[in-house]
Simulated scan of single mutants.
Amino acid sequence: MELDALKTAVPGSVMKQGAPVPGIQADVMEDVNQDGRDWIVHQCCDLIGDAMEMYLGTAVLFVIFLGHCSCDCLSGTYGFQCGYRCHCLPGHCHSTSGCDPGKCSPGWSGATCHKQNVALKKGVSSSGDAVYAPSTDARYPSSLATDGQLGERKYYDCIETRASNPNWWRVDLDDIMMIHDVTVYFRLDYTPRRNGIQVYLTNTTITPSGHFCYTVKANTSGTDINDILSVPCHGRGRYVLLYTTTATEENTQPKMDFCEVEVDVCDPGTFGADCENYCHCKHGVCNDMTGVCPPGGCLAGCKGTNCSVECVGNVEYGPDCGRTCFDRMCKEAASTCPRDTGRCDGGCEPGWEGEDCT
């Protein structure tokens, strides 16, 4: 079929030569109604003889250029209904599996690159930076803790606060966010100041205030605390505060020194300790810790408590996989059975109607 014929035949959509046909990813493609999208799947993929299993009605990118078609997720997206973005280095994103392990973009981490450090390069404040004479400038400023540079994690790579009681350091995330956890990278050449640090998640600049997350408890030398300490700090907040009133044996007043603080959030639609699991909720996104979806169940084509299990191919389909492919009255006995719609290829047997001929 030529491009002009395809353009005039597609219902409810506007197509431009050399541009992607709209899909359900509203932020990257224009909207198109369900009939138009399904029609394009059939016509476009049939034209190129695509042998892959087609999930009709999903967010599939169709590039129509000079009369030629191809079917794939939009570049940089992958997975179920092309609903997930790749946060990895160029050349390491795949339309089915996502990012290659260990190839996350700066500020992203985890097995699937869906955990984001929202503290990176953000503004900070503190009870005061340490100053050493004769200089009047802070030699180890508080901003070093969000610069994304770990270095050798010795004194020259890390912050040092001025001695005071209480003593605190705070990062401003610029907006209220759902926080997953906080990770502190301590300096490696001196450990006593690790003991006694408290972590808070808050929406005010009052110190201390908000949701108390964790207290670092150690011996006076701090040697029994991990060099990289990740603590649960789940909740909504704008500021993450590290606070202490604990002085070391060498200091009469508290001081803090650490090299980096990461404040991690899960990409929407992911959950788990490393944001490595997926959920396909019908309304909104799942809880980033448990994966439980809001009321309303799963997207068509998925099932399970977390809506993370896809329907068995050519066996079941629809919301919560509650419909059976063998119950359809398809005109073509060998019709495919898309997990989301169950749509029959070639229409229905006489007397039956509907997308899935039931």
Rank of each mutant, 00 (worst) to 15 (best):
M1A: 10
G322A: 12
S95G: 06
V261W: 06
D35Q: 11
A247H: 04
M289C: 08
N306P: 00
D264L: 05
F62E: 07
E160Y: 06
P350Q: 01
A300N: 12
K303T: 13
R85I: 05
C307K: 09
Q149H: 12
L56D: 07
P192F: 03
A130R: 08
A145M: 05
K115C: 12
K303H: 13
I179F: 10
G148H: 12
M256P: 04
L144A: 01
P106N: 01
S142Q: 12
R139D: 13
T112V: 15
D38F: 06
V309G: 11
K303Y: 13
C275Y: 07
L6E: 11
C88E: 05
H87T: 03
P11L: 01
C71I: 03
I159V: 13
P350T: 01
Q253E: 14
H68F: 08
A273F: 03
V118C: 04
M178T: 12
P106L: 00
N251E: 13
R170W: 00
G49A: 02
D100A: 11
V309T: 15
N251R: 07
E262T: 02
D157V: 05
C302T: 15
P11H: 00
G110D: 02
D181W: 08
H211V: 10
G222P: 01
C73S: 04
D35T: 06
T191Y: 14
E2V: 05
G272F: 06
T136R: 14
G272W: 09
F65G: 07
N33D: 15
V231K: 03
A26L: 13
C311G: 15
L47K: 14
C321P: 05
T161Q: 02
S230T: 15
G284E: 00
T245G: 08
H92S: 14
R238P: 02
H180P: 04
Y185D: 08
C99Y: 00
K282W: 07
G272D: 07
W352G: 10
D175V: 05
D157T: 04
V10A: 15
Q17F: 06
G342H: 05
G36P: 09
C275K: 08
L3K: 09
C259A: 09
T205A: 12
G18E: 03
I206S: 14
P268H: 10
Y140M: 12
G296D: 10
E2Q: 10
I228P: 07
D320E: 15
S230H: 08
R328P: 04
G148F: 13
A334W: 05
L173I: 04
G18T: 01
G235V: 01
D72A: 08
T161C: 02
A300E: 12
T204V: 03
T223C: 08
Y200V: 02
T58H: 14
E249Q: 13
V118D: 04
